[in-house]
Amino acid sequence: MKSIANKETAKNMMLIIIGSFLYAISVNVFTVPNDLAEGGLTGFSLILFYLTKIEPSYTIFICNIVIIAIGYKFLDKKTLNYTLVANGIISVLLLVVTKWEFIPETTLLAPIGSGIFMGAGIGLIMLGHGTTAGSDILAKIMQKYLGINIPTSLLLIDIFIVLPSVFIIGTENVFLTLVNLYIQTKMIDFVLEGLNPRKSIFIISEKYDAIAKQIETQIGRGITLLDGSGHYTGNKKQVLYIIISRREVLSIKRIVEAIDPNAFVTISDVQEVTGEGFTYLPQEEQAERITEAEEQGLQ
């Protein structure tokens, strides 16, 4: 067991180191030389850098430590430890990776490169059970005290950081930054879960109620409770069935692992999902279709 734990720790550390290196390349090679901004705490650090020339590594390290101290209870011990490690490595690499810069003739190449490297870096850090702290913890605090779900909180934080930067880097570079953020999101999704946009999860555990409550609280997804029984033993079992986006898979796996490491979990690709929480039609068009269906039913 100790050998397995050591291998897992080594694997997570390797992912965090590689992810942090890609993160540093994104900031120092693509973002800063082309006067672009970023979302979250990195964006705040870059604004300070453009105004005062204080190195982003110092700002990121200090601000992350403060945020972690305030919101440490929102992270489990394992994630907290890896987050502290990631924060330290990122801060050091931001000071080390300074010899290269990429200033392309084609303007769009800078935000594309920045988005790919940053998204891949953050994705690898998350795969290593770490986070980049900052925005993640702030989003969880906003969810608890303001009732705003995590994706919306992250978006609001990015908007709050990026929009004021128009007065520092200019309107054109702000739009290029939005391209960067969009590519980051897609790259994180790809690193974490590949190309399939939706997943279905079955969870069988005696602690199903505790798992369901944590998923509803932290992820905000509805859960279907199914009745089941073991064929051989005949024992009654409760089965949780959930449809989620691929970005939520890692969070749910961590919740289940923390509550019941022995839980039986299956994760499958979903070809298509419609209905509450997954309908892609605008509300107006949904209403029109419902009205048409009702009228046809009366005829």
Score class of each variant (00 low, 15 high):
Ser165Asn: 10
Phe117Glu: 07
Gly121Ala: 12
Tyr182Gly: 06
Ile125Thr: 13
Leu163Ser: 12
Leu181Cys: 08
Val166Ala: 15
Glu206Ser: 15
Met187Phe: 06
Lys199Ala: 08
His129Lys: 15
Met118Asp: 05
Ile125Ser: 09
Ile122Cys: 07
Leu181Glu: 06
Gly170Ile: 12
Tyr182Arg: 06
Ile168Pro: 04
Ser165Pro: 08
Ser135Thr: 14
Leu124Ser: 01
Ile183Gly: 01
Lys207Ala: 10
Asp189Leu: 11
Leu156His: 09
Val191Ile: 15
Pro151Val: 05
Phe175Pro: 04
Ile204His: 04
Ile125Tyr: 04
Ala139Val: 00
Gly123Val: 03
Asp136Asn: 05
Leu192Trp: 07
Tyr182Ser: 10
Glu206Asp: 15
Leu155Thr: 11
Met118Trp: 06
Tyr145Lys: 13
Gly123Pro: 00
Ala120Cys: 14
Thr185Arg: 10
Ile141Asn: 09
Ile116Asp: 00
Tyr208Ala: 13
Glu206Thr: 13
Ala120Asn: 08
Asp136Met: 04
Gly115Cys: 03
Ser205Gly: 09
Ile137Lys: 00
Leu181Arg: 02
Leu138Gly: 01
Phe167His: 11
Leu154Trp: 02
Leu192Arg: 10
Ile112His: 00
Ala120Pro: 03
Gly130Lys: 03
Gly119Arg: 03
Asn180Arg: 08
Glu172Tyr: 13
Tyr145Ile: 11
Lys140Arg: 15
Phe117Ile: 09
Phe167Thr: 14
Met187Cys: 13
Asn149Gln: 13
Thr131Phe: 05
Gly134Ser: 08
Ser165Cys: 09
Val162Ile: 15
Ala133Gly: 06
Ile168Gly: 03
Ile159Asn: 12
Ser114Pro: 05
Asp158Leu: 10
Ile148Val: 14
Gln184His: 12
Ile125Pro: 03
Ile157Met: 11
Thr152Arg: 15
Ile204Asn: 04
Tyr145Cys: 10
Thr132Ser: 13
Gly113Val: 04
Pro111Met: 04
Gly123Lys: 02
Glu172Lys: 15
Val166Trp: 08
Ser135Phe: 03
Pro164Asp: 10
Gly128His: 01
Val166Lys: 12
Thr131Tyr: 03
Ile161Met: 12
Met126Asn: 11
Asn149Thr: 14
Ile159Ala: 15
